[in-house]
Design a binder for these strands. Structure first.
Lengths: 349, 349
DNA sequence: TCAATTAGTCGTAACGTTTCGACTAATATA
DNA sequence: TATATTAGTCGAAACGTTACGACTAATTGA
C-alpha cells in the first residue's frame, strides 16, 4: 500500500520544467497563471510533468519573492479558557475558507513573551496578526509592540480605548447585560440581583452597566444590595454569593426572584445555593448566566439559560477584515466593531 | 510613544553588514554563530548595527537554505471539543518551550480536506506533523497521506492499530475504565452500571473493557443490565439512560448504587435523573464521569468526580518526541505510547 | 628562520521561487 | 509589401539567508 514512498517530494520547479522541455518561467506561468500567457500545448506538458513528478511548490521560496505567505498569526493569552479557544476556532475556520493558514502563539499575559512572539511572527513574514484577548482587561504591554512591527493587525476583545491604533473587534457587553436584564424584567421578575467580579476593569462591569440601563428604562429603582461582587468567576464564588443572597431574605417570597450572573460558572454556584435552600428554579428563582458554554449549560439542573457571546463571530470577522485590508491596502481605515449578544433559552430563566 | 514607527523592519542582513563594515557571511556568523569563528570586535559592531537598525532575520530565507523552519503542523478534526483543544493546548505549550511554532489546520473529519491540509503543510516546509484525533475512532482516509509526504509525523488518540507506521500517542482508555470501576468497588458499591455509546468502535468501548476487568478481578459477576448503551455523549442521552436505570429498580436499596458514565456530559444527565428521583448523591448513588472537564464538573451539584484523561500530556509528549526525532533522525524508531488516566476526586463519588 | 597551522574574513554559490526585459515568430494593419 | 502588434518563450535577476572554499595575517612548532 506504500509503493510510492520513494516520492520524497524533492521535485522542484526546475525538474518539472526540464521534464516538460520548457524554461522555469514558463513552467511557473503554466502552473500559477503568471503575467504572461502560455500555449495550451506547453501548459499540458507542464501540468502532466508536475502531476507525474508529484510536484508541489515550495511556499517558502514563493513567500520570499512575493512577500505574502497566506498566513495569519494569532496571538492569544492562553489556550484553556473558552473565551480564547472560541475566538481561535472562528479565526481558523474563516482563515481556511480563504485558503489562509493560522499560526499560534500564546503569551500567558506576559509582556516579554508577547513581544517575542510578535517579533517572531514578523520574522516569519506573517501577512497579519490577530491579537486575541480573553478578558476585556487591558493587559499592559501585551500588544504594545504591534504598531511598530509594520504588520497589519487586529485586536479582539481588548478594551477598546487603550490608545492603540488599528482595527478592533469587541463584544457589546453592555448590550448583553441589557438584554439579559430585560428578559428577566419582561418575565415579571421584581427583584433581580447581579453577581460578578467588579474589582477589575472587566467585561463584568460593562455587563453591569447594561443591567442598570435596563432597570432605568423600566423605571425601576435599583438598590445597591442588588449588586453582589465576587472575587472570581469560579463556581465556588458563585455559591458563596448565592448563599449570601438567598440567606439574606430567607422566607421572603419576593426577596430575590432572579439572579443574573456574569458567567455560567458563577451561575452554576447560584443554582447550587438554590438547591441547598430548597428553592425551585425557575419557579421561585430565575437564574441567567453569561457565556453560553454548551456543555455546562446543558449539564446543569435545571439547564441554564445564558447570554451567548459571539466569540466565534469575532474571530471570523477579524479574518475577513484583515484579508480585506491585505487585498485593498489603499482604502483601509481603522475600524472598531461591536458584536451584539443574544440569549440562548433553556430552563432556568 | 510611537516615534519609532518609521522602522518598517526592512533592514536586511546586507544592511547590517554594510553598517558594520563586514561581509554578509561575517555578519551571519556573528549573529547566529556560524561554522567559522568571528573576532570580538567584529561581533560587537555587527550586534550594535543589528540593534540600531532593528534587524530581525527573515525566517523564510533561512528556512529555504537550512530546510528547517522550527514549525510543527497540527492537524485536528475540529476546534470545539475539549478532546481536541486540550491536546492542541499541550502541543502549543511544549512547542513554545522548545522555540517551535505551531500551525493549525482542521479537516472536519473529511478526507479530502485532510489531504489538502497535509500537502499544504508539506509545501510550507513544516518540520513535522502531529495529527490529532478527538475520538479513538478511525476516520478512514484522514491520515492516509501522511506516510507518503516524507515528513515526520505523530498521530495521537487515533486507534493504535490502523496499519499506519510511525509514532503514536494514545490514552489508556481501558486503564481509565479500570481505575474508575475499582474506585467505586473499593467504596463498597455493590451494583455499578456503565453508561456509554457502544455502537461505534470508540473510547467508550475500551473503557467498558476496563469496567469488566475490574469486576472480574474483584470476583464480581457482571449482569448484562449493568451496561446501558446510549446513542450519543450528550446530557440528554445521559438523562434518558439515568431515568431507565433508576426507574428499573424503583425502591430497591441496592438496585443500583453507582453509575460510571463514559463522559462528564452523560454523567450530568445521570445526576439530573437522580435529582428527579430524589436520590442522594453520593449517599444513595455514586456518579463518576469521564474527561474531567473542569467547568462542568465543578459546576454540577454535587460536583462530579471524574476520570482525568491526560490529553495535554499527550500533546506535550508528541512534541518532545517529534523534536527528538528531528534532532537525531538516525536513532529513531516508531513508538507507541499509552498514557494512563487518573481520578479527580470531587463530591459525587 | 621557514613551514605548517589556525583565526578571521571575504566572495560567492546555493535554496526554489516569481517576474522583468528581451527575443522570436506569427498575425493584423495600412 | 513593409510595419506595428501581439502570443509565446526564454534567460537572468531578484528575494534574504547559510555555508563552502579561498584568501590573508598571525601564531605555532621545529
Amino acid at each position: 500500500m506504500a509503493e510510492n514512498t520513494v516520492s520524497l517530494n524533492k521535485a522542484t520547479l526546475k525538474d518539472v520544467a526540464r521534464a516538460a522541455g520548457v524554461a522555469w518561467s514558463t513552467a511557473s506561468y503554466a502552473l500559477n497563471g503568471g503575467p504572461k500567457p502560455v500555449s495550451e500545448a506547453a501548459r499540458r506538458r507542464v501540468l502532466d510533468a508536475a502531476q507525474s513528478l508529484g510536484y508541489s511548490s515550495n511556499l517558502l521560496a514563493r513567500g520570499l519573492v512575493t512577500g505574502r505567505m497566506r498566513t495569519i498569526g494569532v496571538l492569544a493569552p492562553d489556550f484553556h479558557s473558552t473565551n480564547a479557544t472560541e475566538q481561535i476556532a472562528g479565526v481558523e475556520a474563516e482563515a481556511q475558507l480563504h485558503d489562509y493558514r493560522v499560526v499560534l502563539a500564546t503569551h500567558l499575559s506576559e509582556p516579554v513573551r508577547a513581544e517575542i512572539m510578535q517579533r517572531d511572527m514578523s520574522a516569519r513574514r506573517m501577512d497579519g496578526i490577530i491579537s486575541i484577548s480573553a478578558t476585556a482587561d487591558v493587559k499592559p504591554g501585551v500588544a504594545d509592540v504591534l504598531p511598530i512591527l509594520g504588520l497589519p493587525y487586529i485586536r479582539t476583545y481588548h478594551a477598546p480605548l487603550d490608545g492603540l491604533p488599528g482595527d478592533y473587534a469587541a463584544v457589546n457587553q453592555e448590550q448583553g447585560g441589557y438584554i439579559a436584564t430585560k428578559h428577566l424584567l419582561d418575565q415579571g421578575r421584581r427583584r433581580i440581583v447581579y453577581v460578578g467580579p467588579l474589582n477589575r476593569r472587566d467585561a463584568a462591569r460593562k455587563r453591569l452597566e447594561g443591567f442598570r440601563r435596563a432597570h432605568a428604562e423600566a423605571g425601576r429603582v435599583l438598590s445597591e444590595d442588588q449588586i453582589v461582587a465576587t472575587e472570581t468567576f469560579y463556581t465556588s464564588a458563585g455559591l458563596e454569593a448565592g448563599r449570601e443572597i438567598l440567606g439574606r431574605h430567607p422566607a421572603q417570597a419576593v426577596g430575590c426572584d432572579a439572579v443574573l450572573a456574569a458567567s455560567d460558572t458563577l451561575a452554576a454556584g447560584i443554582l447550587r445555593a438554590a438547591h441547598e435552600t430548597g428553592l425551585q428554579v425557575p419557579g421561585d428563582l430565575a437564574v441567567l448566566g453569561f457565556d453560553d458554554i454548551t456543555d455546562l449549560c446543558d449539564g446543569l439542573y435545571p439547564s441554564l439559560t445564558s447570554v451567548h457571546v459571539p466569540l466565534s463571530e469575532i474571530g471570523r470577522w477579524s479574518v475577513r477584515r484583515l484579508i480585506e485590508r491585505l487585498d485593498h491596502p489603499k482604502d483601509w481605515e481603522p475600524t472598531t466593531r461591536y458584536f451584539d449578544c443574544r440569549i440562548t433559552l433553556r430552563e432556568s430563566a
